[in-house]
Design a protein around this nucleic acid. Structure first.
Length: 901
RNA sequence: GGGCAAUUAGCUCAGUUGGUUAGAGCGCUACCUUGACAUGGUAGAGGUCACAGGUUCGAGUCCUGUAUUGCCCACCA
């Protein structure tokens, strides 16, 4: 391809599809446990199988892809395991809704088996959406290892873990107050409850004493639960109720006699100081119920409607309808004392988005404390590192206060609990095993019924880092499994901080418990993406862009680059589609570097290294870009090593645009357009070396564009790929010295560029047309700078559009002229007939004032005996050097002022 | 009620263990379609680093407090 056939801007769509298929076809994504190379492994946070790609996924997976591609180029055996999560509630709800809409059947109408068949059908048909979408993002996932949490091997792992924990006494079945979601009809874990502030009411009711001696007034936010009250409690030290404790009250409407009890839990200062006690519907009341041996009356059904225990009058009513009815009845009875507005936190079901009902229920639990302790240690002794580190505190706090985990769900879609109940007459034996036993060990019966419930989805997710590699729990089998041996522990986990409790903490526990080792070494917590106004992205606000549309509009690499580039360090991201212009423009910029390069023929054969080139072969600007390139490579590598993706993207952007394109490429034109073929060849070699390095350093971030350009130039043979190219290494001080690319040499070039900018400023202020050449007389600041400026005068001429340029140490200015004074020297621009002498004087005066102020500041510092005595010598020396430089420049500015008279 | 963040240019954000005259992108101003790129170039304007104290030779950076905003956790009915 030539410059003529290369379009002016990068056309992403075709390139992306072609390269992704090619990479996958060539097996570049495959992780081979037998390669002998040091592995680098990531397991994807499995998205819900029902999911669609969101910007959150884009960020999360781009980060993982950067790490995998980076480590692959560094020679590691990379393996990134993708997959999806069966997402119990979400998936079941989705299919139920579909069946309702299309066929008007409920899951109960179909029956368990038929319903599950339909869910699987649905999963096969639509479940692959997010996986297909992820490919568009260019991710280097090993698709041959794609896993699903309900795959047979993963399900076997779940069973194995359940059985083991049960035998160890860490899983038990018990009656507890749990969070009930009336919408999905299942228990939830504490983590699945989201508290939202709600404007509610606080009702004050009078409960009469059974002996007719007056009332106790109680306050409640949930009147409907009074139907299940079995006591009223006051604080034992509350003088208002002294002597009344132990008396009986008559529960209104219901007519049940309930005791007035004393319990420390009650806060005297809240409400009336008397609390109605409903042990079956409130966790605190439940505790009190246990302490005082109270009956527990459950007045609600699974769907949140009132049950038989609520009484005939209310049975069948929805809980909120019942609330109104109860209030009305109490009002009629003259027992409603007061109604207050009340702001309080109400727990909502994460998935169902309805208020959860705390409810007494028999469920399966995991005893977490014993699992938490080693997991807490692993993070605090540094075996696992969090980035940013501050999340350790959040983790520690949760782990220190961990509660038992309710793992049973009253759903059908999921891993069915491997517990079997003996159906023998009067026998209550429970057998936890992979299969029902032939004979009951207790009664000898042979009929068993499996538990109807399934497990929390996270009960499979927490095993993900080893279940994906085929863990069985059988030591011999697992030892013989090379994947488990080579790929566990994994290395980096990239996920959102919102699932520290759901997932990260539990994976650490499971890894330590079942593998005897941490599941990963580093955890990188991503930012949360918000819209421009800082609002969370959500369907209801309609502020959630479709990444596929964005990719189609701007290009995948543009989206990838942009989202990393704009992500602040450890903070939320404010995203808007238009920001993708940053990435698109950058892609175009790089594309046009390639077009420029194509004007000068094919790739230099020796582009890979600078070996054989010596300092004297190179122009000063070559030496400068080599030094800058080296710093950029070192910076990018270090940034990725510490997961500083922000710095990585900004370093590359800055280097490519502001240094390589703005200065070096323009400077190279001076050599490339000239008649000296040897000079041209040397310059192209440096140029190609830079380009080849830039492409490789950028590849993890912009895989498609870099691969395309890599091939257009023949950086790789026909069958090769930038994915297999080695990550560039910094040259090191000795090699830089040899090439003359030292900091001192680079500083001289920078000074030159600064002087050129000053000259351009003069040109702009006098409205000199960009193409117009102006003559310049250059008086170097000193002899060494004079020699340096003479070294490559052509570059100066081209960059400043100055011709002729005379370098004269002895020049005495006279007559009207514009002046630019810089560290490198003083530039005189005659500009006959245009000069505004007053303006020049004004400009110089301002410059003199600035320099004087600057010098004074430094002099003040150096005049301070404490500074000289206490500051490090290097700092003092640097200040002295700065002062000398400023004073020399100031002297030259004053000289100019004087000569202007 | 606890905890964690944040507060730097009009906007969104950088700013390594305290040490150049505090930077970038977008936006803004002027000029420019010059043979890589107008998805561009050149030059420029724009900030008492939230506030008040303190430590230090030296503070955007460390400490204390205050204010504002956001998030997480928490059994006050």
């Amino acid at each position: 391809m030539s410059e003529e056939t290369m379009p002016k801007s990068y056309e992403a769509a075709a390139v992306e599809r072609r390269w992704y298929e090619e990479w996958e076809r060539r097996g570049y994504f495959r992780g081979n446990p037998g390669s002998g190379k040091k592995p680098y492994v990531i397991v994807i946070p499995p998205p819900n199988v029902t999911g669609m790609l969101t910007l959150g996924h884009v960020l999360n997976n781009t980060l993982q892809d950067i790490l995998v591609r980076f480590e692959k180029m560094r020679g590691r055996e990379t393996c990134w395991v993708p997959g999806t999560d069966h997402a119990g509630i979400a998936t079941q709800a989705k299919v139920e809704q579909m069946l309702k809409e299309r066929e008007n059947v409920s899951r109960h109408g179909l029956g368990r088996e038929k319903f599950l068949e339909r869910v699987w059908e649905w999963k096969e048909k639509y479940g692959g959406t997010i996986v297909r979408q992820l490919r568009h993002l260019g991710v280097a996932c090993d698709w041959e290892r794609e896993r699903f949490t309900l795959d047979p091997t993963l399900s076997a792992a779940v069973q194995e873990v359940f059985i083991r924990l049960y035998r160890k006494g860490l899983i038990y079945k018990g009656h507890r107050i749990i969070n009930w979601c009336p919408k999905s009809g299942t228990a939830l874990s504490d983590e699945e409850v989201i508290f939202k502030e709600q404007r509610g009411k606080l009702w004050h009711f009078r409960y009469p004493f059974a002996d007719g001696s007056g009332f106790v007034t109680v306050a409640t936010t949930r009147p409907e639960t009074m139907l299940g009250d079995t006591a009223v409690a006051v604080n034992p030290e509350d003088a208002r109720y002294a002597g009344l404790v132990g008396k009986k009250l008559l529960l209104p409407i219901v007519g049940r006699e309930i005791p007035l009890i004393a319990d420390d839990y009650v806060d005297r200062s809240f409400g009336t100081g008397a609390v109605k006690v409903t042990p079956a519907h409130d966790p605190n009341d439940y505790e009190m119920g246990l302490r005082h041996g109270l009956p527990m009356v459950n007045v609600m059904e699974d769907d949140g409607s009132m049950g038989a225990a609520a009484g005939a009058e209310f049975q069948g009513l929805d809980r909120y309808v019942c609330r109104k009815a109860v209030v009305r009845r109490l009002e009629e009875l003259g027992l409603l004392a007061k109604v207050e507005e009340h702001l309080h936190q109400v727990g909502f079901s994460e998935r169902g988005d309805v208020p959860v009902e705390p409810r007494l229920s028999e469920q399966w639990f995991v005893k977490m404390r014993p699992l938490a302790e080693p997991a807490l240690a692993a993070v605090n002794d540094g075996r696992i590192r969090f980035h940013p580190e501050r999340w350790v505190k959040t983790y520690n706090h949760w782990m220190a206060n961990i509660k038992d985990w309710c793992i049973s769900r009253q759903l059908w879609w999921g891993h069915r609990i491997p517990a079997y109940y003996c159906q023998g007459e009067g026998c209550r034996e429970i057998v936890v095993a992979k299969h029902a036993p032939a004979v009951c060990p207790k009664c000898g019966g042979n009929t068993f019924k499996q538990d109807e419930d399934v497990l929390d989805t996270w009960f499979s997710s927490w095993l993900w880092p080893f279940s994906v590699f085929g863990w069985t729990g059988d030591p011999a089998t697992d030892r013989a499994n090379p994947e488990l041996a080579r790929f566990y522990p994994t290395h980096t986990l990239v996920t959102g901080p919102d699932i520290i409790f759901f997932w990260v903490a539990r994976m650490i526990m499971a890894g330590l418990e079942f593998m005897g080792d941490v599941p990963f070494q580093d955890v990188y917590f991503t930012s949360i993406i918000r819209d421009e106004k800082g609002r969370k992205l959500s369907k209801s606000l309609n502020n959630s862009p479709d990444p596929l549309e964005v990719m189609a509009q701007y290009g995948t690499d543009a989206l990838r680059f942009t989202i990393i580039y704009i992500a602040p360090v450890g903070q939320d991201i404010r995203y808007a589609n238009e920001k993708c212009e940053i990435g698109r423009n950058f892609a175009t910029k790089l594309w046009n570097v390639a077009r420029f390069r194509l004007r000068f023929g094919t790739l230099s054969p020796e582009w890979r290294t600078l070996a054989g080139l010596a300092a004297q072969d190179l122009r000063p600007d070559d030496r400068w870009i080599i030094a800058r390139l080296d710093a950029a490579v070192a910076g990018a590598t270090a940034a990725l090593d510490r997961f500083d993706f922000h710095e990585y993207s900004h370093d590359i952007y800055e280097f490519v645009w502001s240094e390589f394109c703005d200065w070096y490429l323009e400077s190279a034109k001076a050599a490339l357009h000239g008649p000296d073929a040897a000079l041209q060849a040397r310059t192209l070699r440096v140029f190609d070396h830079c380009l080849g390095t830039i492409l490789r350093v950028m590849h993890p971030l912009m895989p498609f564009l870099t691969e395309e350009v890599w091939h257009q130039f023949g950086f790789a043979g026909e069958s090769d790929s930038i994915m297999l190219a080695p990550w560039p290494e910094a040259l090191g001080a000795a090699e830089l010295e040899r090439l003359g690319a030292t900091p001192a040499a680079a500083a001289l070039v920078r000074e030159k560029f600064e002087l050129i900018t000053a000259i351009r400023n003069v040109r702009a202020s006098y409205r000199v047309a960009p193409q117009a050449k102006v003559g310049v007389v250059l008086v170097p600041a000193d002899e060494p700078r004079g020699r340096f400026l003479r070294e490559d005068l052509r570059s100066f001429q081209v960059l400043a559009a100055a011709e002729p340029v005379e370098i004269r140490a002895d020049y005495q200015a006279a007559g009207p002229r514009a002046v630019a004074v810089g560290a490198a020297g003083t530039a005189y621009i005659p500009l006959a007939g245009l000069i505004d002498t007053a303006g020049e004087v004004e400009k110089l005066k301002k410059q003199a004032a600035d320099l004087a102020k600057y010098s004074q500041g430094i002099e003040g510092k150096l005049g301070n005996a404490n500074f000289v005595a206490r500051a490090p010598a290097a700092v003092v020396e640097a200040e002295k050097a700065k002062l000398a430089e400023a004073e020399s420049q100031l002297a030259r500015v004053r000289e100019q002022l004087a000569s202007f008279g």
